Simulated scan of single mutants.
Amino acid sequence: MRAITYDRFGPAEDVLCLETLPDPAPSVGEVLVRVHISGVNPSDVKARAGSRPGVTKPPFAKIIPHSDGAGIIEAVGEGVDPSRVGERVWIWNGQWQRAFGTAAELISLPEEQAVTLPDNVSFEVGAALGIPGLTAVQAVLGGGPVSDRTVLVSGGAGTVGHLAIQVAAASGARVIATARGEDDLAAARQAGAEHVFDYGDARLADQILEATGGAPVDRIVEVEFGQNAETNTRIIAERGTIAAYGSAKDMTPALPFYPLMFKAVTLDLLLIYILSKRQRETATQQMTSLLERGALKFRTSETLDLSDCAKAHDMVASGQRSGSVLLKI
């Protein structure tokens, strides 16, 4: 099979190689998926670059990157229902704590990590469900229903934020979002946000409270926890929740503990790779329902050939994109 590999950390162009490897075979409890589309996420890029704190060398001698992907089950291992052969699926955690991910023609992995892809959903969308899709669903719905609640989505034009707005709106929430630049502000509105504000505005907290008539926000989906801690503390409701999935601009934030404590705020720090079995099953069911309803629209910035994997990594690393970066296998 054709696959992208790396055996050391470094710039994408220097370490990513296209090579031919033996086809894998499914072990007991596994399925073999012929990958049609591989999704490239920031976590894949950081792992290849060696930018995770304390990690000095790759955890495996040879790595095929990428955790997200979509394709068709080609074979099954012992203990797996043979009727799954031919099933369209999307993949989660393809390369999480495993050597071989989805940047290859074939991947063998536990059958529960290959989820049925609804007939009305493309492989391109399927390749964005594992990390961006599940993160958005868990961030919005992980604490329960949000119908008639006010949800703030920080960074509403980003890949996760744009989906989170749609998830919240489709689930009956009143949605407020932040973004920057006319195009991104418009994208957040089109996704379903009733009010959208520039996240760099010094009056952001006041603007949000003016939009709600002074009522605090029930749930905040946060991409920059540290940078926005003070604003969020002002606007969050008593017993509200801040569901944070990132803090890249301030990785060691000072926490306004007592103001948050006296509101009994819940801080929900999300790492989608390690959801419990129950959490993942619930989030997957919720996302499948939204997909079948046609409630989610996914944006793709670029679809490149597998051989252009280094270019795809650089595009993601630059941050200059308005949707998923995908590889066609």
Rank of each mutant, 00 (worst) to 15 (best):
A164E: 05
A139Q: 04
E124V: 02
T303W: 00
L290E: 13
D198Q: 10
A168N: 03
D308P: 00
L134V: 09
Q95L: 01
V265F: 10
G158E: 09
P42M: 06
L304M: 03
S147N: 11
A136P: 07
F100T: 07
E112Y: 13
R48W: 02
L296F: 12
G226Y: 01
E112S: 13
A157Y: 08
R239W: 13
R52T: 06
G246Y: 02
L185C: 08
D268A: 13
K46S: 12
H313A: 10
P253I: 05
F197H: 09
G246E: 02
H195D: 13
D305E: 15
L267W: 02
E19W: 00
R52H: 13
L21Y: 02
T20V: 11
S307F: 00
T266Q: 13
S301V: 00
L204R: 08
L134H: 12
A186R: 14
A128R: 01
D201M: 04
G144S: 12
I236T: 08
Q207M: 14
A248W: 04
A264L: 10
R278N: 11
E111V: 14
G143H: 07
G126H: 05
L209N: 12
A25T: 14
D44I: 05
Q286G: 11
I64L: 02
T135H: 09
W96K: 07
K46R: 14
S301P: 00
A310T: 13
L204Y: 08
M287A: 12
A312H: 07
E222K: 03
H162Q: 14
